[in-house]
Write a protein that binds this DNA or RNA. Sequence first.
RNA 1: GGGUCGGUAGCUCAGUCGGUAGAGCAGCGCCCUUUUAAGGCGUUGGUCGUGGGUUCGAGCCCCACCCGACCCA
Length: 494
Amino acid sequence: MNNEEENHLIAERRTKLAALRQQGVAFPNDFRRDALAADLLATYAERDAAWLEANPVRVRVGGRMMFKRVMGKASFAKIADRSGAIQLFLQEDALGAAYEAFKDYDVGDILGAAGPLFRTRTGELSVRVTGLELLVKSLRPLPDKWHGLADTETRYRQRYVDLVMNESSRAVFRTRTQIVRYLRDALDALDFLEVETPMMHPIPGGAAARPFVTHHNALDARMYLRIAPELYLKRLIVGGFERVYEINRNFRNEGLSTQHNPEFTMLELYWAYSDYRELMELIERLLHGLADSLLGTRLVNYQGRAYDLSRPFRRVTVAELVLEHNPDLDRSRLRDVPYLRAACERLGVPVKSGDGAGKLQIEIFEKTAEHTLLDPTFVCAYPAEVSPLSRANDSDPFLTDRFEFFIGGRELANGFSELNDSEDQAARFRAQVARHEAGDDEAMHYDADYIRALEYGMPPTAGLGLGVDRLVMFLTDSPSIRDVLLFPQMRPEA
RNA sequence: GGGUCGGUAGCUCAGUCGGUAGAGCAGCGCCCUUUUAAGGCGUUGGUCGUGGGUUCGAGCCCCACCCGACCCA
């Protein structure tokens, strides 16, 4: 693997490149295309061989040669551009010396070709090449044209090779862009303002997670890569923007898995004069719109299971799900700490000494219920203990006006009516600091400026965080988050 | 962190009981003017992930480590 420089395949190509340098400009940049493969295939789809003969269409196409088939004095090749691929037909009679040169070209080389369109005997639209130019000599051999690139490690580490070889991979990333564009268009249409807030925070906040730490030399200050933009976006609500959103990266210093990458993309939106119920309706509308516009159906297949998004999304509370999946538990004792602690121990869930009933309920929920939430489900009424930024419920302050949204057993979104009582927020921060000092390094810090902002008054507001990567996974039937990240985090190569 | 599986030619993969490292594709040479994984003949190419160990002999057995995938915490 590490002596590729000595590989004879590469060595042969280097020799060819050296010869090209001797002949002149080896990397020309004066070839210009006037057509893309897929456009030609679509435009002339209905034109038969006779029509093309009678109405010559001269084109200039360029791209990477994906196969090459020499048959004596005539050859076929196929070049791929960003739109697709088109076949070239090359003849010694028409090309002369250029034909001899072509026989030395390798699959993977980047070519420019010119000539009229025609149809082969089997009816494939092709370019009868009258002019041919090698634009870039490729030094490294591509994977097997039939089996493609299957090795997952190479697909992730050398995504450029994956993209060259696998149309399915290209399709995932095109779809990802369409999803993000759909979300932007939908929110823009609702008069939300897209903003950018800091990625480097003096105080990490807005989520329960371990941050990446860095250092600013000029300020001699410790900085944290953001774990969430939440507290900055809500400052903008205080400032009067009323409807804001940001789609960008968050960074969390945690393990890697099929659902976790250290940097991941989150949509966060804040919506003044709204509440968590309207957020749930918004999520349903967004998913319907995405399915309709991207897939053309609300019946989504994900990893072999059908998800019917047209059915109403289930809404259920944390407590109901805990009881549903732990029928032995006593409904009347769901806030009894020793009782819940014993239940956690029976389930093999680790508990910390400071955990209250709310935290213990969530531990039980995550252990027994979360993974069963396949069809779209809003889980509501999260305990205040685990929701330090959420508005307390008016009739039951043990709970908050908060939900999480699950699909396929995975958390896709988290939304709540925002806590805009500055004194309550200050008390919640103090409780978090106490947890942090007790050893919970995911607990939040006290953000005095955020409290100051709330003291100016934040209108009643609803806020949502939606995991874009997981949404893309669901809509592209991808089993791993690495399949929807162009360059997923990997251990450095040895 | 624990478990399972994997790493052999550029790619995709075989490799039996521990006994001379293989195939297809690609490459190289020759033939071939409408191919569709083109075809025919010939042929090059290996630090078997890395380092130890056992053995007369290790791709294969043992130990440690590296990288990856999946599951669990």
